[in-house]
């Protein structure tokens, strides 16, 4: 069920401001791809363009194509709602619904898909929570508010919520940036397990994390304030971190930025 993503000359705009210019890359199925780069270079923007969340921002639009196994998700007649049901997303800040219990949070997507039977929902929730490595921690408090968990647990609830609907692709925007090292490790382990089933794209500021979890890495950069971000280089993670082709990539990954 994991699918390949091909991005073809994608540019992203916020109103008239071009935030990202001419990105072309491909994401392999059943693998983890990392996006790295300095702040403001458009990593989140590209990521959000992959499940049509970009256009949720008023005035935002894209040009170019994003193919999900041949199908252009920006093609005519494509329903963004369907796209988002196929491509799950985990945000930088844990955002469980505060008005729902842990269980209701995890099955929120399934409910949207029309699943109603209580017992099925409970089974699916358990499966998703086990998948997110959270079951043992929350099995006694499934009916407590989701917002009452720790930050790391909340983030894993969000991951469980995203994988409960069995998406074909999972997008993660700095999923560990608000978490402590132990929760981070738990989520990295989780990503390592999920890669067998899902296509994963992860944005991270943490080089070690990128090199630990991903097979391929894309480096984005921005030439100045107000300039659009660009994809500088995309290659196997090993190559990006040991022997990149571009000088700018080398400067960035070795910390000689600027």
């Amino acid at each position: 069920m994991a699918k390949r993503i091909e991005i073809e000359s994608l540019s992203c705009f916020y109103g008239n401001f071009k935030a990202v210019e001419d990105v072309t890359l491909s994401v392999e199925p059943k693998s983890v791809t990392a996006f790295i780069g300095p702040s403001g270079c458009g990593k989140s923007t590209v990521l959000r363009a992959l499940n049509r969340m970009h256009e949720v921002t008023p005035g935002a639009h894209v040009t170019g194509r994003v193919l999900l196994d041949q199908d252009d998700i920006y093609g005519p007649g494509v329903d963004p709602v369907q796209v988002r049901r196929t491509i799950g997303m985990v945000f930088q800040r844990p955002n469980p619904f505060p008005t729902m219990s842990v269980l209701d949070n995890v099955v929120a997507g399934l409910r949207l898909n029309g699943m109603k039977t209580k017992s099925t929902l409970a089974e699916e929730a358990e499966r998703a929570l086990r998948g997110a490595g959270l079951w043992d921690e929350v099995k006694d408090r499934l009916h407590r508010p989701g917002a009452g968990l720790s930050g790391g647990q909340q983030q894993r609830v969000c991951i469980a919520r995203a994988i409960a609907v069995q998406p074909q692709v999972l997008l993660m925007d700095e999923p560990c940036s608000a978490l402590d090292p132990i929760s981070t490790l738990a989520i990295e382990d989780l990503i390592a397990q999920l890669r067998d089933q899902y296509t994963i794209v992860i944005v991270t500021h943490n080089m070690q994390q990128a090199s630990r979890v991903s097979e391929r890495t894309g480096f984005f950069n921005i030439s100045g304030v107000g300039q659009p971000g660009k994809l500088i280089e995309m290659d196997s993670t090993h190559k990006i971190f040991s022997n990149p082709t571009e000088k700018r990539t080398e400067d960035y990954v070795t910390g000689r930025f600027g």
Partner: peptide, 11 residues
Amino acid sequence: DHKEAALALGA
């Protein structure tokens, strides 16, 4: 955050 969480689930 909450609205985007719902939209990202395909709401």
